[in-house]
Computed example of a mutant assay.
Amino acid sequence: MTAFARRAERIQPSAIREFLALAGDPGITSFAGGYPDPTLFPMGELHKIYDDLLTPDNASALQYTASDGLPELRAQVAARLTADGMPSTADDVLITQGGQQGLDLTAKLFVDAGDVIVTERPTFLGALIAFNPCEPRYVSVPMDEEGMDVDALEQVLRTTERVKLIYTVPDFQNPTGRTLGLARRRRLVELAEEFDVVILEDTPYRELRYEGERVPSVKSLDTSGRVVHLGSFSKILAPGLRLGWVLAAPEVLEKLSLLKLAADTQNGTLNMRAAAAYLAGFDIESHIASMLPTYRSKRDLMLRTVAEHFPDGITWTQAQGGLFTWVTFPERLDVAAFQRDLLIPRAGVIVVPGAPFFAERPEAHHARMSFSGVPDDRLVSGVRAMGGLLREALS
């Protein structure tokens, strides 16, 4: 077939999608997907809620509803955002199909072919997948332990034409786990003001902090409505609900709502009703707090086991929250080839090679490893086996 639109050339297979297909094999230990621990889902509460909703008296739970999201749920999300330093009402919130749809809609709204999106280096692969059909150019900004280097960002903004969007995951970034410091957040907003650029703030891991002080969101520092803030219930309730949200200025939100209407009409009413019932009838803050010790323990176990079994010359990040550590190997190791030739066939272990997380100039000697969805015994055995094969490959 030759009739594809030009944008279809930018639609490429996702490395994560390919590896997640392997993750369903019970013989595979997967550090690839950023899956929450399913034992932490509030199954009992959700079971009761769905039982109550799926009755004749609640037939409206299976009916169409407002395209921008169930009004009750939007008000509940707005209340939580307000408590997090982002004053808002239901009219400021759009409910989306997870955070991923927020990425897709925002790119469609702001980015023309040839426009520049500035990303962190490395950045979230799923965002690149969402942005690519809009045919942008990318410029990436290096990171350190305090997140995006805003001095380097300033240089990019001074020397690059047609910058439309700065994309950041400021809290426990995917893939590195790093957090953008408060001073840098303030400078990021100042630079966006100076150069008239939109900031897209993606925060799916924001509430999964295991240690340290909570940092104000980038949106909370916004005084002119140029920050589009994305959030999600995927990591704090359940990803299968496919519920996220956008908080944005009225003129931005109106157009995003129309783009969503064109894309899918609305989110599923049943799941929105279930989430609203959960927020009304149960304490989600207590639920989130109850998850954190488990994730903290898993993070500590992975980092401790990596330190014990990986050979010298390998480094990794130590995130204060989120679901990932970013591992950097000697430059001579191509992680994708190592995984294909040794790690999968001999250990039954998968990670996500780092190259696809680079918007430009990919580097092959990194990997993203997730600790969140792996049972402790398999986490230890998988890291140990990986360490043995690394010693062999690097010897």
Rank of each mutant, 00 (worst) to 15 (best):
R209S: 00
H309I: 06
E193G: 08
G69D: 03
S60W: 07
L333Q: 05
A274D: 04
R391K: 14
S395Q: 15
L157H: 08
R162I: 11
G212V: 07
K255R: 14
R214V: 12
I344K: 02
R17D: 15
F41Q: 04
V352Q: 07
L46P: 09
P356E: 01
L279R: 06
K48V: 13
T106P: 01
Q76K: 15
G281A: 06
R273G: 02
T176Q: 07
P239S: 12
R242K: 15
E211D: 15
G126W: 00
L261M: 11
E9W: 14
Q318V: 13
H229I: 08
A238E: 07
L62Y: 09
T315W: 10
I344V: 15
Q12V: 14
A32C: 11
D283H: 01
Q318H: 14
V306G: 11
P42F: 04
Y35I: 14
P375I: 03
P136W: 04
I11G: 08
A8K: 06
L253K: 03
T176G: 10
Q155N: 15
R304Q: 14
F41V: 04
R184I: 02
N132A: 15
R296Q: 07
I314T: 10
C134P: 07
S60P: 07
R17L: 12
P239L: 10
L54A: 12
P56K: 02
A59M: 11
D341N: 12
A183P: 06
A127L: 08
V252G: 00
G34I: 06
P362T: 13
A5F: 14
L303D: 09
T2K: 14
R185A: 00
S286V: 12
S257R: 12
T168Y: 00
H365T: 08
V169L: 07
L279N: 05
I129F: 11
E392Y: 13
H309S: 11
N267S: 14
P216K: 00
T160L: 04
Y138L: 10
L379G: 01
L241F: 15
V227S: 00
L103Y: 05
L292Q: 00
R296W: 00
R137C: 10
G147Y: 01
T168S: 12
I11F: 05
P293E: 07
L105Y: 05
Q100W: 00
E207R: 09
P133G: 08
F19Q: 08
F324A: 14
R121K: 13
I95S: 03
D264G: 12
R178N: 11
E285L: 06
D222V: 05
L279E: 03
F31T: 01
P13F: 02
R187V: 12
A79R: 05
T159Y: 03
L153A: 10
A319E: 01
I344S: 00
L128H: 02
E9H: 13
Y138G: 06
R137V: 12
I288N: 01
A289Q: 09
D51N: 14
L81F: 04
L333A: 00
R6S: 11
Q318S: 14
A393S: 13
L389G: 01
I28A: 10
V383W: 03
R187K: 15
L394H: 03
G281P: 06
I288A: 04
A5K: 12
L303I: 14
V351D: 02
M291G: 04
K298A: 07
Y278D: 00
A127M: 13
E331A: 07
M302T: 08
A367P: 03
Y50A: 04
E213Q: 12
L81P: 02
L157E: 03
H309G: 09
